[in-house]
Nucleic acid binder design. Structure first.
Length: 343
DNA sequence: GGTAGACCTGGACGC
DNA sequence: GCGTCCAGGTCTACC
């Protein structure tokens, strides 16, 4: 008799709402993340100790408008196979980073005091990846391309360089969209530039991505050149992290500021063409692109260490007014909207 | 320190 | 079906 796939429960902060807090940043539409808007279930492929597995995370039945009853309800996590105890711990740690479970009610309340517009909806957490490396690579794939290309690059990176889930269960065969993990730094560090360019369609980013992977990869048991723990440590000065990010291949001012927010440091704004569009269309700003960018930065400066979240949820709400609540979005249709020229 | 142009992909458009 | 144009941040060379 074969053992049944693992089921777990994950505790969340008292105000946590999976659909609202997971569908809060564009990366929730990128492989190997998959959100099913029909069942309000998050599917994520993760590299665990023995082999990859798919996790399905759910908090309750789907809804259209934000419900009160679900907030703080523990998450149910179903795995595609049996997970050893160490794998369960690793899976929970990965989900905690993705879902920002480290942001407790007090830190969200501090944001709402700085910008009360989001108190009613409870917006405050921003979805991210299970590792800093994946956040950095996803940011590189979002630079100098329209959003559909970002979607394709991430899917192909997983399919070409990720590990495939071998064990097929009801979970993986019927409902999961992706079967491959996001590539590890070690795997990407060994890849050929021609593979990245030809099969993953990352273009001129090929060598930069390999160089980044080499900085984050462990080699022959030696620690990596860059330690993610240094970046994640709240005691590390923001200025030092920002300077280090700017020194990395493929990381410029936009990417560095975006990675800062993914690290939970919200005082900088990643300004791009979207910011200019938002400045003109929503804030009514005028002038050259450079002038509008400067005015957008000035506009959100009073929010201080909460500036990015004020900026981001204002833009997110603008998207939602056009295409509905983010938890109803489908990658294959709504995902194509996220480019300044279309919005 | 500021700026122009190259770097790629994929979608839109015209023929 | 083919060719052309355009959007999109980073990097380098040049002033």
């Amino acid at each position: 008799m074969t053992a049944r796939p693992t089921r777990m429960t994950l505790s969340v902060p008292g105000d946590y709402l999976l659909a609202r807090d997971y569908c809060s940043y564009g990366y929730f539409l990128l492989a190997p993340n998959h959100w099913d808007p029909d069942t309000h279930t998050l599917y994520r492929v993760l590299d665990l100790e023995d082999s990859p597995a798919v996790l399905a995370v759910n908090q309750g039945p789907p809804f259209r408008t934000l419900p009160r009853g679900l907030r703080g309800k523990p998450l149910t996590v179903r795995a595609s196979r049996v997970l050893a105890r160490a794998e369960q711990s690793r899976a929970k740690a990965a989900l905690s980073r993705i879902l920002r479970l480290d942001e407790d009610r007090r830190t969200i309340a501090a944001f709402h005091r700085a910008d009360p517009r989001w108190k009613r909806s409870g917006r405050g957490r921003l979805m991210r990846s299970p590792t800093l490396f994946e956040d950095i690579l996803k940011t590189v794939t979002s630079c100098n391309v329209t959003w559909p290309s970002t979607v394709n690059m991430n899917r192909r990176l997983c399919e070409v360089l990720g590990r495939k889930v071998a064990q097929v269960s009801d979970l993986t065969s019927a409902t999961c969209f992706f079967r491959h993990t996001f590539p590890t730094p070690e795997k990407l560090a060994r890849a050929r530039a021609t593979t990245l360019r030809g099969r993953c369609r990352v273009g001129y980013r090929d060598r930069r991505m390999i160089e980044l992977a080499r900085l984050f990869a462990s080699r022959r048991g030696k620690p990596p050149t860059l330690d993610p723990r240094w970046f994640e440590d709240p005691r590390t000065p923001s200025g030092e992290i920002h300077d280090t990010l700017l020194s990395l291949p493929g990381i410029g001012p936009y990417a560095a500021a975006n990675i800062m927010q993914l690290l939970g440091r919200y005082d900088r704004l990643p300004l791009d063409t979207e910011s200019v569009r938002h400045g003109r269309d929503v804030l009514g700003l005028a002038g050259t692109d450079a002038h509008v960018m400067k005015k957008v930065a000035d506009h959100f400066a009073p929010f201080g260490r909460h500036a990015f979240r004020s900026y981001w949820f204002e833009m997110w709400t603008h998207y939602e007014k056009k295409v509905g609540p983010s938890w109803t979005w489908r990658r294959e249709t709504d995902a194509n909207q996220f480019t300044a020229s279309k919005l």
